[in-house]
Amino acid sequence: MSAPSVEASGAVGAPDVEVVLRKAGRTKIRYPARLLADDGTRVTVRAPWAGAGVRDFGFVRFEPGDVFVEHFWRDRWYAVKEVYAAGGTLKGWYCDVTRPATVESTVLTIEDLDLDLWCSADRTTILRLDEDEFTESTLPTADPAAAAAALQALDDLEALAKAGDSFPRTGL
């Protein structure tokens, strides 16, 4: 059974939904977001780039002014984030492999499982990321079922990226 939805709590459209990203039992980042939708399975929020300064991955730069439209599922092992430049141009999709999202009141929590995928806006660049971190983590031995679900989620994300129009595109 899923946690009560943010929508059911009366917080639809509230600017103070908090997204909490946890990794290895610790909070990695928390940030406020605007709730766009919650249908009981998928939660969609909009948030400005929450990092400090510019983060240059080589294949994409996240920087102040960027806007993320983020999709989290209560029944899937990943999150898909549409990344827009300050001017509204889609940069691409950054996907995190996570445990299914939980929502309690106005707090949306996900647990990062190290694996990520990047898909550029023109879909010419699709990159599987951090597989070495995943292999070196304790998850494969500590929770083999979760590790298998995480690897399957990465495969699913890659298939969606290659399918062409399967990633959400909400726009700004």
Rank of each mutant, 00 (worst) to 15 (best):
residue 1 M to V: 12
residue 3 A to H: 12
residue 6 V to W: 10
residue 8 A to C: 12
residue 9 S to Y: 12
residue 10 G to N: 13
residue 11 A to N: 13
residue 16 D to K: 00
residue 16 D to T: 01
residue 19 V to D: 01
residue 20 V to R: 04
residue 21 L to Q: 04
residue 25 G to I: 01
residue 26 R to C: 01
residue 29 I to R: 09
residue 33 A to L: 07
residue 34 R to T: 15
residue 34 R to G: 05
residue 35 L to E: 06
residue 37 A to T: 02
residue 38 D to N: 11
residue 40 G to L: 10
residue 41 T to D: 15
residue 42 R to P: 00
residue 43 V to R: 03
residue 44 T to H: 03
residue 44 T to R: 15
residue 44 T to I: 15
residue 45 V to H: 06
residue 48 P to E: 09
residue 57 F to Q: 11
residue 60 V to G: 14
residue 60 V to P: 11
residue 65 G to Q: 07
residue 70 E to N: 13
residue 70 E to A: 13
residue 70 E to P: 04
residue 73 W to A: 07
residue 73 W to K: 04
residue 76 R to G: 04
residue 77 W to R: 00
residue 79 A to K: 07
residue 80 V to R: 00
residue 81 K to H: 14
residue 82 E to F: 02
residue 85 A to I: 01
residue 90 L to M: 02
residue 90 L to T: 00
residue 93 W to A: 09
residue 98 T to S: 10
residue 98 T to F: 08
residue 99 R to S: 14
residue 102 T to M: 02
residue 106 T to K: 13
residue 111 E to K: 00
residue 117 L to W: 00
residue 119 C to R: 06
residue 126 I to V: 15
residue 127 L to P: 07
residue 128 R to N: 12
residue 128 R to I: 11
residue 128 R to V: 07
residue 130 D to H: 12
residue 134 F to I: 03
residue 140 P to I: 02
residue 144 P to L: 10
residue 144 P to R: 07
residue 145 A to M: 04
residue 151 L to F: 03
residue 153 A to N: 11
residue 155 D to W: 05
residue 156 D to F: 11
residue 157 L to S: 11
residue 160 L to K: 08
residue 164 G to R: 06
residue 164 G to V: 09
residue 171 G to D: 03
